[in-house]
Design a protein around this nucleic acid. Structure first.
Length: 651
RNA sequence: GCCCCUGUAGCUCAGUGGUAGAGCAACCGCCUUGUAAGCGGUAGGUCGUCAGUUCAAACCUGACCGGGGGCUCCA
């Protein structure tokens, strides 16, 4: 950090190194060409920093737009901000871009990058901007402040246009309404670290009522190596895709005959799921939960009472109308009723709470259910197990007194995190969603208290806490647990949500020690969110190689020749007695092939037996990682496998 | 719901208007084997569905049904 002399630019002060792409001047990110005075505080911002990288990508988006307008002069510009891992730019074009177009655009971009065009900032008046951008209808709408001040192109008090100036001729090649800042020239963007990824449609300013534009997604990095690392990461993510692994490992499928977003679990997936559920059940029992069951379908009146039909109807399957009785002349003899598939379990649980009078002595009352719910997701958003139309929540509703709330939330959060850790996730952060004053029920005081209680519970976990200001649902604040998986992606897992609305709507009450009737506090919580989704997350986290306790097949016995089949069947019987899921591969194949098959099925333990092992009363291990351990006595082998399962270790 | 892409054997994929192909998997044999594919054979598809164009459609057109990528929303 330095202070500079008069009549100089940020570039002069801190721009010596080409990794410096912009400067932070008195705390604000500005172009390096910005003049500074000796009272300004000027700091370099390098391309390695999040801000610097965003600038690099934003500038790359401009280069894309320039290339598009070269190739398609009729294309109208939308907006082009940096986003996670890259950037996009939206265009209004008569025909959508093809993959060939992308290849062509990339070539043009490289040419622009290599020509080292200077990004030159120019302040314009609104009238000038309107005149200059007469042929860019969307930009005009931005100037007219449609979309608000947070749009990338316009900001602050003044309008600016960035001109791209050719390094040699000094002529203006292109320009775009933009608040900047930008890298000094296109030479700062390594041509071999830029790639156009895909095209997609997007509504102008994200609003379905607006025009649909063609979006081009691209990525840009400080170096070729970083681009390559990113592409490798994408490949890795693709290999782990649960839809692909689900088919390969024969875990589940989505039969077209059943319908979009509705999965069936095959025997192998069924085992994993059962083990996940069994363990969760046990832990819930130990933690004082009581198990309930409720039907999948209910009369509409229940969802009128809960309010779901008011604010959630379009997320629900349409009703079926039952029990109406109409005579020949069309007179209604009996009024029918609409039945809905349930999109949530909470109304049912409230009915259980309300089934009889409740005492303060029963609280906290923790009702738990693996409740299968159905949501009519729009056809464009259904995606594998992570976004299905039918799924099973590990859903609990906790009814407690206001006084118990703090303690309960604290325990709950600890319980949730401990359980997630048992499934092998270890890297978490928490997100606290607070009140949106525009749409919420309940008094300021209860919101304040509940939010503060949640915050304290969160802070006690010593995890990073991110604030999601105004992100809560209308009925109460919430904490969500975000988990990072093995390749660093974050998934929203558990949510803990305080609800001020439903106890009111259902008129829930308990009788207090003084004989008065009080309204309980209600806490919704799902730990896995949905079992199917959690299944998918674990599948991707482990890349299909589940730890032994979850693996569908834990051990495969592989005979050297079929003379050893009987011996391995005996070993398998011993394992099975200890509860191990074991198979013996007696197919008419060579053992090398059986090893390959077991390896591809990601079985944790292979037990191989030939003459030597039989003679010694032993087996030989081949582990999933390819290591081997020969001549292990049967008892020791069984103990080792059982111990590995019981400790829930990964191997 | 909207836009683009896509649908050929259980899986991965060839096949651009003239009688449907490969590898793996499956099934049947042969081989009897020490840590990721032994050899041979057999069977398997109304080319997502329905309509249309054509002498002729897996191939061209349309609608519908799946799937993928986005927009929006969420677990």
């Amino acid at each position: 950090m330095r202070s500079g002399p008069v009549v100089t630019t940020a570039q002069d002060l801190v721009g010596g190194d080409r990794s410096v792409v912009v400067a932070r001047i008195n705390g604000e990110i500005k172009d390096l060409a910005t003049p500074v005075t000796d009272t300004d505080v000027v700091e370099p911002v390098t391309v390695d920093s999040p801000e610097g990288l965003a600038v690099l990508r934003h500038s790359t988006a401009h280069v894309l737009a320039q290339a598009v307008q070269e190739a398609f002069p009729e294309a109208k510009l939308g907006i082009g901000p940096p986003v996670k891992d890259g950037f996009y730019y939206d265009f209004d074009v008569a025909t959508p871009f093809t993959p060939e177009d992308l290849a062509e655009l990339e070539k043009r971009m490289v040419r622009i990058l290599k020509s080292r065009q200077r990004f030159a900032r120019r302040v314009v008046t609104e009238e000038d901007a309107v005149r200059e951008l007469a042929h860019e209808p969307y930009k005009l709408r931005l100037i007219g402040s449609e979309g608000g001040a947070d749009v990338m192109e316009v900001g602050g008090a003044e309008l600016t246009i960035y001109d791209n100036i050719d390094a040699k001729s000094g002529e203006r090649c292109w320009g775009d309404l933009c608040r900047g800042p930008h890298v000094p020239d296109t030479g700062y963007i390594p041509p071999n670290a830029v790639k156009l990824m895909r095209t997609a449609a997007a509504y102008w300013l994200g609003d379905q009522k607006n025009e649909q534009l063609q979006r081009v997604y691209g990525t840009a990095w400080p170096s070729k190596e970083e681009l390559r690392a990113y592409l490798t990461f994408l490949e890795e993510a693709e290999k782990r895709d649960h839809r692909k692994l689900g088919a390969e490992l024969d875990l589940f499928s989505f039969p077209e005959e059943i319908g979009s977003g509705l999965a069936v679990f095959h025997p192998k997936g069924g085992v994993v799921r059962r083990v996940m559920e069994d363990y969760s059940r046990r832990r819930h029992e130990e933690a004082g939960y009581e198990f309930v069951n409720s039907p999948h379908i209910t009369k509409g009146a229940l969802f009128e009472k809960s309010g779901h039909l008011d604010w959630y109807a379009e997320g629900m399957y349409p009703p079926m109308h039952l029990d109406a009785d109409i005579d020949e002349s069309g007179n209604v003899r009996r009024q029918g009723a609409d039945y809905y598939l349930k999109p949530m379990n909470c109304p049912m649980h409230n009915l259980i709470f309300d089934a009889r009078g409740r005492s303060y002595r029963e609280l906290p009352l923790r009702l738990f259910e693996f409740g299968t719910v159905y949501r009519y997701e729009k056809s464009g958003v259904v995606q594998g197990l992570t976004r299905a139309r039918g799924f099973t929540q590990d859903d609990a509703h906790i009814y407690c007194t206001k006084e118990q709330m703090a303690d309960e939330l604290d325990r709950l959060l600890t319980f949730v995190l401990d359980l997630l850790r048992d499934y092998g996730l270890s890297d978490f952060y928490l997100e606290l969603s607070t009140r949106d004053p525009e749409k919420s029920v309940g008094t300021d005081e209860v919101w304040e208290e509940a939010t503060e209680t949640l915050r304290q519970a969160a802070e006690r976990q010593n995890l990073e806490l991110v604030l999601d200001e105004g992100g809560a649902a209308f009925y109460g604040p919430k904490i969500s647990v975000q988990a990072k998986d093995a390749i660093g992606r974050t998934w929203q897992m558990s949510t803990i949500q305080v609800d001020f609305n439903l106890p009111e709507r259902f008129g829930l009450e308990y009788q207090a020690p003084d004989g008065s009737r009080q309204r309980p506090v209600m806490i919704h919580r799902a730990l896995f969110g949905s079992i199917e989704r959690f299944f998918a997350v674990l599948l991707e986290h482990y890349a299909g190689a589940f730890p032994p306790w979850l693996a569908p097949v834990q051990v495969v016995g592989i005979p050297i020749s079929d003379a050893h089949n009987a011996y391995l069947h005996e070993v398998a019987a011993r394992l099975r007695q200890r509860g191990v899921r074991v198979e013996v591969d007696t197919a008419d194949e060579r053992m090398q092939k059986k090893i390959r098959n077991a390896q591809r099925a990601k079985v944790p333990f292979m037990l191989i037996a030939g003459d030597d092992d039989v003679a010694a009363g032993a087996v030989s291990f081949r582990y999933r990682n390819g290591e081997q351990k020969n001549g292990v006595p049967i008892d020791a082998a069984v103990d080792e496998i059982v111990a590995s399962i019981e400790t829930r270790e990964q191997v």
